[in-house]
C-alpha cells in the first residue's frame, strides 16, 4: 500500500493505493488517525484501492468513530466498485460517509 496526503486548510485528503488487508492496516491507521486526532476533516480517496478485506473495513469504521469523537468527519471518496461491494456486504453504506 502506498499513499499520498495533501492538506488544504482543515481538510486532509489521503489517497490510498493498493490492496488493504491485515498486513497493511497498521500503516493505514498511522497515516489516517493523526489527521483525525488533529481535528481535521479527512477525505479518504479510495479510487486506487481495488481490494479491501475485513481488516480494511475495520480501519474505515474506526476512522469514522474516531472522527465522531473529535467532532469532525471522514468522507470516503471515489470508492472503487469492488470495495463498495465489500462495504455494502458489511451493511455500512448508510453509516460511513460515502461520496
Amino acid at each position: 500500500m502506498s499513499y499520498k496526503v495533501t492538506e488544504d486548510g482543515n481538510i486532509a485528503t489521503i489517497h490510498l493505493d493498493g490492496e488493504i488487508d491485515m498486513d497493511v492496516t497498521e500503516k493505514a491507521k498511522e497515516v489516517i488517525f493523526p489527521h483525525i486526532e488533529a481535528g481535521k476533516e479527512v477525505h479518504l480517496n479510495l479510487s486506487n484501492v481495488q481490494y479491501m478485506d475485513s481488516s480494511g473495513i475495520s480501519v474505515l469504521i474506526e476512522s469514522h468513530q474516531k472522527a465522531l469523537e473529535k467532532n469532525t468527519k471522514v468522507i470516503i471518496k471515489d470508492v472503487s466498485k469492488s470495495v463498495l461491494k465489500v462495504i455494502m456486504m458489511a451493511k455500512l453504506e448508510q453509516i460511513l460517509n460515502l461520496e
Partner: peptide
C-alpha cells in the same frame, strides 16, 4: 452482530455470506 457497528468480527461474516 452486523448491526452492532464496531471494528472487527466481520471476516467470518463475509465467509458465511
Amino acid at each position: 452482530e452486523i448491526d452492532n457497528v464496531k471494528p472487527g468480527g466481520l471476516g467470518t461474516f463475509f465467509i458465511q455470506e
